[in-house]
Amino acid sequence: MNPKEIFDLLKKEIGDGVLELVEKEHHDPFIIVTPEAIVETCLVLRDDEKTLFDYLVNLSGVDEKDKFIVVYHLFSLKHRYRIVLKVYLERENPHVPTVERVWRSANWHEREAYDMFGIVFDGHSDLRRILSPYDWEGYPLRKDYKMPEYYKGIKVPL
């Protein structure tokens, strides 16, 4: 299957939630999906006979200047094919439904995206920080993050 066929299949099943297919040079081809339709899209991709994307390889957050992006890399063990999904979120209050119940590996990936960027995943069973200490303030991987001066009395910068 090539990206165009997958996009057509999704357009037929989901309809408006799937926005467009982007195939640029030096980019892996990706499909942009709205935040409301992401869970249904993932369920279709996982269960449909022609696609069978049963392996979530990677879920990462990205900070562009004016928006947040959540990127999903999927892989199908049977058909040996890969696809990329992207969800665009606004910067002030980023919310997106969780895909934890579709693939269990999304659990820890989403916790990390929350820890590093502050993207809130609605419906997650245990959304708290995973890599930074539990009482850390701020979201470290944002482009406008400033290193704190002191943490519990220990001086942080050099």
């Binding site: 640029k24 040079e25 030096h26 980019h27 892996d28 390889v57 990677n58 990462s60 990127v71 890399h73 990329v84």
Partner: peptide, 18 residues
């Protein structure tokens, strides 16, 4: 300008860089 996901078989499994 672009993005890519590069992967290889680490001894422990699949290591990828996005």
């Amino acid at each position: 300008v672009g993005e890519f996901y590069a992967k290889a078989e680490n001894p422990k499994g699949e290591l990828g860089f996005y």
